[in-house]
């Protein structure tokens, strides 16, 4: 594996369509969404990542930081020799707002839940794009990102990811007993890199 890098990313553009989709906003007028966006402060955009070699072993995959026999991941990583493992978080700001409005305004809680999810996804997209450009130049193409909990890849892999990327220290991410991340608007994923045919 390469050493873990931790970076801050510039605020990605808001994807209003996604926020509306997550919140079942439909055609409601924008006033609620706008007032929530105005209230949103203190979001950070941070990612820790490293590159790992993967090898087939005992019918599964040795990812250097963990072994998995997930068939879905194997399909996803077909033809890949290396992966990028990353953890990304937008921090506690959405969680604080969700906790607050869960108690006093479920409508706003719903919105901050949606906005937080959109922020985290947009952060992943921005990171993905950065990596894509980097690997493209090196002659690699990226596979779609794949997270613990998708298909047959167990959520418990989060423990390995937290350890190897030192997420607690680098990003402030903590796992609870059910392997859920706090801040809740955090994402971990594996991106396969495949050598382009020349």
């Amino acid at each position: 594996m390469t050493p873990v890098r931790t970076i801050s990313i510039e605020e990605p553009k808001f994807n209003i369509k996604e926020i509306k989709r997550y919140s079942h906003y439909g055609e409601a007028d924008d006033s609620l969404l706008d007032s929530c966006l105005e209230e949103l402060k203190g979001i950070t955009y941070r990612v820790s990542y490293a590159e790992f070699d993967i090898t087939e072993k005992d019918g599964g995959l040795d990812l250097e930081f963990a072994f998995t026999d997930s068939k879905n991941l194997q399909t996803n990583l077909k033809n890949c020799e290396k992966i990028i493992l990353f953890a990304a978080t937008v921090g506690f700001a959405p969680d604080r707002l969700i906790e607050k409005y869960n108690r006093i305004s479920p409508a706003k809680a719903l919105m901050f839940q949606a906005i937080g999810s959109e922020r985290a996804e947009s952060l992943c997209d921005a990171f993905n794009e950065m990596i894509r450009a980097e690997y493209d130049a090196k002659g690699y193409k990226l596979h779609p990102r794949f997270s613990p909990g998708y298909g047959d890849l167990p959520i418990t892999m989060q423990r390995d990811i937290m350890r190897v990327l030192d997420c607690r220290k680098n990003l402030g991410i903590i796992l609870n007993e059910n392997c859920l991340m706090m801040p809740s608007k955090s994402v971990t994923a594996i991106i396969g890199t495949e050598k382009k045919e020349s």
Binding site: S23, H24, Y25, A28, L32, L33, P106, L110
Partner: peptide, 10 residues
């Protein structure tokens, strides 16, 4: 839609 339903409920 859902946000409106909730705001009415509130």
């Amino acid at each position: 839609f859902l946000p409106q339903l909730l705001m009415s409920a509130e």
